[in-house]
Structures are given as structure tokens and as C-alpha cells.
């Protein structure tokens, strides 16, 4: 299947910092591709180049075969962008917001009006279409933000962390909408630092950290990279750094990472290791509040690839 988006060796530097370093991937029509990584990993800079906001220093991004950049006006018609920040006008109504961005995409009446009505239906804002956006709840604003991106039925929809700060109900509605879009043949580039969103939505996932793609593949392909290891999370207080150091010395423990309240271990055969792990942590003066054992997931993959937790 022909690629809707093809990124070839994208590099973008800000001073000495390489925000994006040699990133390449493709997305086919009807495919949802996830960029999974922590804040500051390079996701938004990658998206900025894909959406034509930034020129890459090196490499090229092509949409339907044509290079995209700030001056590529015609190519931008194929792209719908949903920025991480709410990109709506609070002092315009929901309908006015949609109509304005639709006109910028070249849509005109009566097609524009019909399409605005369709999108209002999709995002569940028909009843509130005439209200100013500043009167919407956070979830409603997020849905309007997404609705603007898909109004002109782009070939490629780029969503940059669309569920940040959204209540669970609205979040589920957004995820269902994205699932429906890929089912309609739209190529979707979806960035997130929520592992469960990437697992649920994405046909393929790229793990990005420090501006570089660490790995790419389907969920199962990525899980295989870990060697099918399990994960143990120790939640508690005390000197977590000392506990992590002590746990690294245990046989069967592959990697250890910790943040403010949790020590995370990737291990082979978690059930047999839980007891020595707990006693070692307690011996290292960690006060345990909870112990959680889980099978491999993308969090484990990220830990395996980068040596740190996704939430770091």
C-alpha cells in the first residue's frame, strides 16, 4: 500500500540540541501510527515538520509523495493538525470555529455548512454549537480541537497528545473517534506518552526518546524485544535510590528504574522473584505501600530500550 506519509532521515536542531535526530518512518492509508515517548522526547518537533510548520535541517517528509514544509501550501491541504495545546478561539462559537478553519482549507458554502454539521455530530457538540467555546468544558474543547483537524477530510490526520488533561469519559470518546477515522481510510499519526492509548489505537508504534526512534513495530513485535520479561513495581517511600541499587544485584533482575514513589524492575519469571525483591527493598530501608506484578507491555519495552520509565 502506498505511503500517505514518508519521513526520511528527519533531523532538526535547536542550537546544540538535536530535538529530532535521523527519524524515518512511513504511514499507509487507514493505518494509525503511534509515536510513544516521554515529554521532551521529540514528538512535537517531529509533528511540526510533518505538518509543515518547520523545515527539517536534514531529511524530508513527504505527504502523498510531495515534500511538506512551511511554503508547501498545496500539500498542506492533505493534512489535518490537532495540536497539543487547544487551538480554538474561545470567543467564537463552536460552529464559527469550525466554519473559519473550513474556509481556510478552501471549503465554501453549501458544502462547508453540511460538513460542519457532520463534524458537530461526530464530536457530539450539536446541542452546544451556538455557544462560545469559552463556555465549553475541557473535554468539549478537546473534541472541538479534534473536529477542526478532521473537518476537511484530510488524507493524514496528525494528533499531538489529544487527550492530555481530559476527563475519562471524554478521553474514551476521543479514542473511539480516532479508531473510527482509521477505519474510514485516513492515515493517523498519533503521539502520546500514555502507553495504554498507543496499545489500543495504533497499528504500529515507534518508541522515541532523546529525538531518536528507539524501535518500531506492532505491539507484539515490540514486546518481543524485551525477551518476554515481566515487570514488578514497588510503590513506597524511603531511599528509593538505595533500594534500586540493591535490587540491581539480584539474580534474574534485568533492569531497574525509579522515580519519586516507585521502583520498577524488569525481571524473568516475576512470580519466583517477588519474595526476594520485596525483602531486598525492605532491607534497603524502603517502606512499601504496594507491590504490583504485570506481564510485558509497552512500558516494559520503553524501560528495556532506554533504561528508564516512560513516566520519567
Amino acid at each position: 500500500m502506498a505511503a500517505v506519509l514518508a519521513c526520511e532521515g528527519l533531523v532538526r536542531r535547536f542550537g546544540d540540541l538535536a530535538a529530532v535526530d535521523d527519524v524515518s518512518f512511513t504511514i499507509a492509508a487507514g493505518e494509525t501510527y503511534g509515536l510513544l515517548g516521554p515529554n521532551g522526547a521529540g514528538k512535537t518537533t517531529t509533528i511540526s515538520m510533518v505538518a509543515g510548520l518547520l523545515d527539517p535541517d536534514v531529511g524530508v517528509a513527504r505527504v502523498l509523495g510531495d515534500p511538506i514544509g512551511p511554503a508547501a501550501v498545496d500539500v498542506k491541504r492533505h493534512i489535518g493538525l490537532v495540536p497539543q495545546e487547544l487551538a480554538i478561539y474561545p470567543d467564537l462559537t463552536g460552529r464559527e470555529n469550525l466554519a473559519f478553519f473550513g474556509r481556510l482549507q478552501g471549503m465554501r458554502k453549501p458544502d462547508l455548512e453540511a460538513r460542519v454539521d457532520e463534524v458537530l455530530e461526530v464530536i457530539g457538540l450539536v446541542d452546544r454549537a451556538g455557544d462560545l467555546a469559552k463556555e465549553y468544558s475541557g473535554g468539549m474543547k478537546r473534541r472541538l480541537n479534534i473536529g477542526i483537524g478532521l473537518l476537511h477530510q484530510p488524507s493524514l490526520l496528525v494528533l499531538d497528545e489529544p487527550t492530555v488533561g481530559v476527563d475519562p469519559q471524554s478521553r474514551n470518546a476521543i479514542l473511539e473517534s480516532v479508531e473510527a477515522l482509521s477505519g474510514e481510510g485516513m492515515a493517523v499519526l498519533y503521539t502520546t506518552h500514555y502507553m495504554e492509548e498507543a496499545e489500543r489505537l495504533c497499528d504500529r508504534i515507534a518508541i522515541i526518546d532523546h529525538g531518536r526512534l528507539q524501535a518500531e513495530g506492532t505491539r507484539d513485535e515490540l514486546l518481543r524485544l524485551t525477551g518476554e520479561v515481566d515487570r514488578i513495581d514497588l510503590v513506597g517511600s524511603g531511599d528509593l535510590g538505595a533500594a534500586a541499587d540493591a535490587l540491581r544485584g539480584l539474580s534474574g533482575v534485568e533492569r531497574v528504574a525509579h522515580d519519586g514513589h516507585t521502583v520498577t524492575l524488569t525481571v524473568h519469571d516475576a512470580p519466583t522473584l517477588v519474595a526476594p525483591v520485596v525483602s531486598t527493598a525492605v532491607a534497603a530501608r524502603m517502606s512499601l505501600a504496594d507491590v504490583e506484578v504485570s506481564r510485558p507491555d509497552l512500558e516494559s519495552v520503553f524501560l528495556h530500550l532506554t533504561g528508564r520509565a516512560l513516566r520519567d
Partner: peptide, 15 residues
């Protein structure tokens, strides 16, 4: 400041 500039810049219009 309010985040709408990237969306305008991503629209098919001359910068």
C-alpha cells in the same frame, strides 16, 4: 499565546 498560530500555519495559505 493561545495556541492557534500553529493551526493557522498548518493551513494551506501562504505564511
Amino acid at each position: 499565546d493561545q495556541g492557534t498560530l500553529p493551526r493557522l500555519q498548518a493551513a494551506p495559505i501562504h505564511p
